[in-house]
Design a protein around this nucleic acid. Structure first.
Lengths: 245, 245
DNA sequence: CGGTAAATTGACTGCTCTCAATTTACGTGG
DNA sequence: CCACGTAAATTGAGAGCAGTCAATTTACCG
């Protein structure tokens, strides 16, 4: 493994340890909620706990694979790369979400690329393990279906709020999204890179920069620390829904 | 029931008869494919066969309901109505697709509105019937999950192709979509109303009209009969992917 | 302290929206 | 079968937002 630090702390995709689902502190959010402890006794293949630094690739679109990830911490971007190399972010998924669920329908090829936007902790679950457990606990199939329904709901909201309208409103919705799903205890959020924000709302990088600069000038977005911003949720919400100032 | 004809033939939402899943000629596409004949012996509630004229409402967003529809013929638009009355079409679903699947996750409120874009034939399946069958045939849960995955895949494609870029390219993708899913044996398609096309690609009605008029002038789109159009798939495909004339 | 990549800003062009007028289509009633 | 009325579609003119290209500044890592 090479060590090319993207941040001062770590580093590379790392194997952190064997997952202990029985004592998972967020099991209620995870794919395996509802399964009895004994279900984890005799797994066909182990579940590993992985740490991905920002920018690390969980998997790439079109590649063969046999594992699903459930996110314990951080934000994962699902993206599509066009023929010309342009990127479009289709979803941002946080703690409790599962990625790679398309493999459960028999295929073995990922439909999108999954890239860590943050420092991400995720459990790597082999598809064979899920299929074995599904056979024994039919409830798991319903769980997976609920996860898909969540993805669908979130994507629909994505399309409605960030898919059309003036760039300023779309970015306002993105900020609200980040506040809702990634804010720390102080309500502060870590902004995406300009390129990523552009890939979410479907505009050019320059437009993103201009709009964000304008929000800062008007005091709707305030820098509280390196990479940490606080936004005036009230005003941004008004901006997102109305079409004024 | 009032009778306000939208076309010369019928008319109103009609009960056509009891569905006979055992002899369904497109059962392989439907939700119940894979179920043995005997599964239909003792349903808790009957499955009805419904005919919806263009514009008929299958259900409206936010309303209570307890049935899922599977489409046998025609095109159904799933749409969201904004606070200002503006409509945005999130998906167009054709034969073999199921709508209202969100009810299977325990809720009883539809998340979108479903409206017939065409003359639509659909089977009305009570949720209790599906749940009872799921208990007996776990395979059905997987079927429903696959349907959701299909919706998700289609929505992703929708976002990528019709969610950004110049209006001309987005409309080109819409024409290709209609050709793929609704063309008759001659390859001809029935265009949506200008308002509906605008609600799909997220532009104004005027822009749609201008682009369509331009395509007609250039011979890429030809009227072969009332409401029936034939398009030069080759040229439209080039237009959809490249950015030139 | 230096180098590379990202972000910012400006000027200009072009596309799309809005508003408005006109034409066409279509169902209704004579 | 034809005349009429409403709604949809079409077309035009003008303004504004966003994209592109290019130059500059800033940030970040070694």
């Amino acid at each position: 493994m090479t060590r090319e630090a993207q941040h001062s702390y770590c580093t590379d995709t790392q194997w952190v340890g064997r997952s202990e689902c029985r004592v998972c502190n967020i099991r209620s959010m995870m794919l395996f909620s509802g399964l009895p402890d004994e279900a984890f006794e005799r797994l066909l293949r182990p579940i590993d706990n992985m740490a991905f630094p920002p920018g690390a690739i969980l998997y790439e679109a079109g590649t063969h694979g046999d594992v699903v990830y459930t996110i314990r911490r951080g934000l994962v971007k699902m993206l599509h790369v066009g023929a010309d190399g342009s990127q479009r972010i289709l979803r941002l998924l946080g703690a409790g979400s599962a990625v790679g669920l398309e493999l459960l329908d028999g295929g073995d090829v990922y439909r999108h690329s999954a890239v860590a936007a943050n420092q991400v902790d995720a459990c790597r679950i082999p598809v064979v393990t899920i299929e074995a457990l599904e056979h024994e606990f039919p409830e798991l199939t319903r769980q997976a279906r609920q996860r898909l329904q969540q993805h669908l709901d979130r994507t629909d909201e994505w399309v409605l709020t960030m898919g059309s309208g003036p760039a300023r409103q779309r970015l306002a919705h993105l900020l609200l999204f980040l506040t809702r799903y990634t804010a720390d205890r102080n309500g502060d959020i870590e902004l995406l890179s300009g390129e990523d924000m552009a890939a979410v709302v479907g505009t050019s990088v320059e437009t993103v920069s201009r709009v964000v600069a304008d929000l800062k000038r008007r005091g709707l977005l305030e820098r509280v620390a390196a990479h940490l911003y606080r936004c005036d949720t009230q005003a941004i919400e008004a901006l997102a829904n109305d079409a004024d100032a």
